[in-house]
Design a protein around this nucleic acid. Structure first.
Lengths: 222, 222
DNA sequence: CAGCATACCGTACAATGTACGATACGGCAA
DNA sequence: TTGCCGTATCGTACATTGTACGGTATGCTG
């Protein structure tokens, strides 16, 4: 498994390739030491860096490969297509989003939704290209993405359920209202994040933070 | 020079004109009878058809031109670039969206926001690719788009203002609350539309219509 | 008729995704 | 050892894209 990048001569008749060291930004890269799965992750990381810095349309196979110091076709050893790589990027994005939200919403404060909502919005604002890729992609979910999405939403539902349960609701009514409250909350958060990313908020002559407070006041499950 | 065996001369005298009748979908050819502005609109219409039927990445210069029965480079007589054409498509989209909403929002019902909200959602659901192009484009607004966006939102603010005014609010407080209520309403509608388009709603184990009712109950400016 | 503006578009080029197949190497069977 | 196979790498080639360049056609104005 663990092999160093090979030297291969061109298919036709070129005798050899000159340099051992490839010209790339990846100077001290762990590529050579990584196994198959780790290399997949390295590719995703490199792709996310390009996405973050230069936008989706610049995330090309050749560019990501160059960043890793490998040939373009090497990526096809790990992903079937560019679309496959994009799905992997989306999965990573959901993991990042949920990690941030869960980490921020562990507290029992008088306003328990503030932390998670703030973390959600911050993720979107700090990773606008990734957030767009995650939520505005016309392609359907892969099974893994579906699992991640449902799982993350279920976490929110559980929190809402616990909250409503402590207020006396039980049975199917509890379940129904928890799902609805959680859905409405997420929808509003996503709407705010989506518009904020695309700079549509300033058009509304309002500040994003004020709107978040407003949403929390009107839409949060409490 | 005229008959160089090399194939590399970029500019060469052209032998003849292509046949008069072009093979295209444009049979009744409104193109020939149109003036400059009308042709611009024909191009936008053709591009929107391709967008609607086959998605954004298939809206290529060559494809739109073929649909119109003209050469690819002809489009550059009317638009500076593909991006320029996209902006024109976005402008048309906003006009369509606002037309639909204004037409549907007859104000004097017990629930005055239902009509407009429903029309908004229907536009997004019926034109998902266009809606995505309008709201998820990473590019900044052109002045014309900005004008359209602000104008449409101002219409909503005016309606909310009238409503709040009839309840006794006045002065800067009225202005402030109207803007905030309208902003929150739009954000929630956009969040619902955006998630519904990308099929994320079924994941929430809820129906889009139910969620719209829920949003109207919690977020509408009333 | 000459000159110019406008419209049309064939050709070429650089960048893209990716199919194909050559090259290299590690491990296993004989 | 020798031979073979599976995995990894990647050079090449091709179709498709946006669009720059510059040519041709047509109408208007003098």
């Amino acid at each position: 498994m663990t092999t160093s990048p090979r030297q291969s001569s061109p298919a036709r008749s070129r005798p050899s390739r000159s340099p051992r060291v490839r010209i790339s930004i990846a100077l001290s890269r762990p590529w050579a030491k990584a196994d198959h799965l780790q290399r997949k992750n390295l590719i995703v990381t490199a792709a996310l860096e390009v996405l973050h810095r230069h936008g989706l349309q610049t995330v090309t196979i050749r560019r990501v490969a160059q960043r890793l110091g490998v040939g373009a076709m090497t990526l096809y050893t790990y992903f079937d297509s560019q679309n496959d790589l994009r799905h992997a990027m989306i999965e990573r994005g959901f993991q990042m989003l949920y990690d941030g939200c869960n980490q921020a919403s562990t507290l029992d404060t008088p306003q328990p939704w503030h932390g998670g909502a703030h973390a959600y919005l911050q993720f979107a604002l700090k990773n606008p290209n990734l957030y767009r890729l995650m939520f505005d992609s016309p392609s359907t979910f892969s099974p893994a993405e579906h699992q991640l999405f449902v799982g993350g939403f279920q976490g929110l539902i559980d929190k809402v359920t616990a909250r409503l349960s402590s207020r006396g609701l039980t049975g199917p009514q509890l379940k129904h209202q928890a799902a609805r409250d959680a859905g409405r909350f997420w929808i509003a958060l996503h709407g705010l994040a989506s518009l904020a990313i695309s700079n549509r908020i300033t058009v509304l002559s309002a500040k994003t933070d004020d709107l978040l407070d407003d949403i929390l006041a009107h839409v949060s499950p409490d």
